[in-house]
């Protein structure tokens, strides 16, 4: 059993490193993206081996649902921009066969010159070697597991990771939500969104798949959110799953994005942060400290924050997939 586990670990790690290496050595960007999707899948298996099912769940939802689609759509956007520029925009210069325009022809990145090979390799080897040396010298520290365990009964939930995320280190989680929001504000500040490049997909398969899958994804998201208080799961994983369902809907109708009115949309994306902050300020006023809860209220407040955070994360991830700001936001 143990020998097999070690063998499994070794094969898995070799696969992860190999896939990452081939991904970064690709000249074809599409191949690099497909390898990156595979990399995410193998990483999820590694998280399972490191007894971190919560992280594996997040990796599954992100890697399979969000990042893969985001990267594929980005490549297609780049390709359609390039095609548009080549096909005779009046002011655009003709493509220069040696210049940077040629580099992006059909999403192709030529291998770099050999000049940087040795310095880069030496640098990476030194950094990696020093890291490994430092890591192998470390003691078997117990970390904070006993401390968290001793406080579980006053945390309001039964799952230690949720307790850390939404009670003991709630400030970090609050700022994490803020970062998702800031990323969206940044993407919105670049301009209005344009159409997602898409080709017709005739036949009953696509609409049929969506009709079946979107409701199942929504149910799964709600289940993962609910499970978070006592088992692996939680707001972010649930938000990512719901976000993936939203991305499916966007992909189904790329030319008719729902015209969300600006006010409610803004409220939706900032609801998670706003509610979290309100609860935190109430805690400060009531004497539990900023972002603190009374012990009896911990469970309902955590659930309330998680629900709002899930909705905001899902909405924000879909908006990040669409990238530009909707026309309704300027009204």
């Amino acid at each position: 059993m143990n020998g097999l586990l070690v063998l499994f670990d070794l094969v898995l790690l070799a696969g992860i490193v190999g896939v990452a290496w081939r991904c970064l050595a690709s000249t074809d960007l599409f191949r690099a993206v497909v390898l990156f999707i595979t990399f995410g899948l193998l990483l999820a298996l590694a998280w399972v081996r490191l007894e971190a099912p919560d992280i594996a769940l997040a990796e599954a939802a992100i890697g399979a649902g969000i990042t893969g689609a985001l990267l594929l759509v980005t490549l297609e956007r780049l390709r359609s921009i390039m095609a548009e520029r080549r096909s005779g925009r009046p002011h655009s210069p003709p493509p220069d066969p040696t210049g940077p325009h040629a580099l992006l022809r059909a999403l192709h990145d030529p291998l770099p010159e050999h000049r940087t090979f040795l310095p880069a390799l030496t640098f990476a080897l030194v950094v990696g070697g020093l890291l490994v040396t430092a890591l192998w010298h470390q003691p078997q520290s117990v970390g904070l597991e006993p401390v968290v365990d001793a406080h579980m009964d006053v945390s309001g939930v039964d799952h230690p990771i949720t307790a850390v995320l939404l009670n003991f280190r709630a400030y970090d989680t609050f700022l994490e939500l803020a970062i998702v929001l800031i990323a969206l504000l940044g993407a919105w500040s670049l301009g209005r969104h344009d159409l997602i490049p898409a080709r017709p997909a005739p036949g009953p398969i696509l609409p049929g798949t969506l009709r079946l899958l979107v409701p199942v994804a929504v149910v799964t998201g709600v289940y993962v959110l609910w499970a978070g208080s006592h088992a692996p799961g939680g707001a972010f994983q649930a938000g990512a799953i719901l976000g993936a369902a939203g991305i499916l809907l966007v992909l189904a109708r790329p030319r008719q994005l729902p015209m969300a009115p600006g006010g409610p949309l803004r409220l939706g994306i900032s609801a998670g942060v706003a509610l979290f902050l309100l609860v935190g300020l109430y805690g400060l006023a009531a004497g539990h400290g900023f972002l603190g809860y009374a012990e009896a209220w911990a469970y309902p407040l955590i659930i309330l924050i998680e629900v709002a955070a899930t909705l905001s994360i899902a909405l924000t991830l879909v908006a990040l997939f669409v990238a530009g700001r909707p026309a309704g936001d300027d009204a």
Binding site: A58, I62, L70, L144, R169, A183, A187, L320
Partner: peptide, 25 residues
Amino acid sequence: PDPVAQALTLTGIVVAVSATAFALA
């Protein structure tokens, strides 16, 4: 395993995804 480390990783992953989406935009 240490639940704090796992919680930190989860936070880090969310940050990485947000930064990636913004960078791609």
